[in-house]
Every structure is written in C-alpha cells, then in structure tokens.
C-alpha cells in the first residue's frame, strides 16, 4: 500500500471505521513508515484538541432569521426570459411570426385591393414598348402577350 492511499484512509482508521483486513494492512504500513505515523499522530493531536469542546445546540428560529437577512440576488430583467422553458419561448416566437405574417399579408392585400387593373389596351402598349427595347425577354413578353384578354380601356 502506498503512502498516499494510506493517508486517504487515516481518518477512517483513527475512528475505527475500517474493516479488519484493511485496518491490518494500514497497521503493517504504519509499522514501517515513519512519515505516515507522524501524519496519524497529527490527527490524534487534533482530535485531542477538539474533544473537550462542548456541543451547543443552535437557538430555535436562528436559521429563519439568517434566511430573512440574506439579500435577494438582483438578476438582469432578461434572465427570467432566458430561464423560461424553451418550448414556451419557441411557441411565443412562432406565434409572433404568424401574427406578423398575417398582418403583412393583409396589408399587402389591402394595398392591392386599392388598385384597379390596367386595361389590356394599355398592357399591349407597354409590352410593345418593352419589345422595342434592346435585350427584350422575348419568351416572357410572348407569354404575357398571349395572355392578354380583350379588355378595353373605356373611361
């Protein structure tokens, strides 16, 4: 047994808490090791110093009084948010996104609703003008041109 292991168990040895076999092993080591014996002697001296001290029971209500005097810890305001359960945070974020999306969508619909549609007479003019520009996207203009209805500007 090495000194380090012996010293770890010296307190238990001194208090008689080790089983017989282990105590015997320590005893054999102490017979041969002066340093460990000295360590044991220190423990015994400390024990001798503590032994006369009287045990005093704490007065009733002392811990309640101590607790009451402990200052509450001031956390930053955001810490309580961070300490909230994560699923709750995720749901709140999802709800916020959904409400925001609906609001934006409704706003867009309202904007569109305020617009009339350009009559095809004018659409055609715009397409023809676009076709007369360089780098015209013939396929895209062709698709729009083919989709023009027979609506006429009338007002």
């Amino acid at each position: 047994m090495r000194c380090a292991e012996v010293r770890e168990k010296l307190t238990e040895y001194q208090l008689g808490l080790l089983d017989e076999a282990e105590a015997e092993t320590l005893r054999l080591h102490l017979d041969d090791c002066a340093a460990c014996r000295e360590e044991l002697a220190v423990l015994e001296r400390m024990d001798a110093l503590i032994a006369p001290a009287e045990r005093v029971a704490a007065p009733e209500g002392m811990w309640l009084a101590v607790h009451a005097r402990i200052k509450p810890r001031h956390s930053p305001w955001w810490r309580s948010w961070m300490e909230a359960p994560r699923p709750a945070l995720a749901m709140a974020a999802a709800l916020l996104l959904a409400v925001g999306g609906i609001w934006l969508g409704l706003r867009g619909m309202r904007d569109d609703a305020a617009y009339e549609v350009l009559a095809s007479d004018y659409q055609e003019q715009q397409i023809v003008a676009q076709w007369s520009q360089p780098l015209a996207d013939d396929a895209a203009l062709g698709v729009i041109y083919a989709s023009l209805g027979g609506t006429r500007e009338t007002q």
Partner: peptide, 11 residues
C-alpha cells in the same frame, strides 16, 4: 388620380 396594376409594370 387612379393607380393601376399591370403585368410587367404598374400605371
């Protein structure tokens, strides 16, 4: 004044 929506450009 009226604002109108068109394909490709508004008016």
């Amino acid at each position: 004044l009226e604002h109108l929506r068109g394909t490709g450009a508004d008016a």
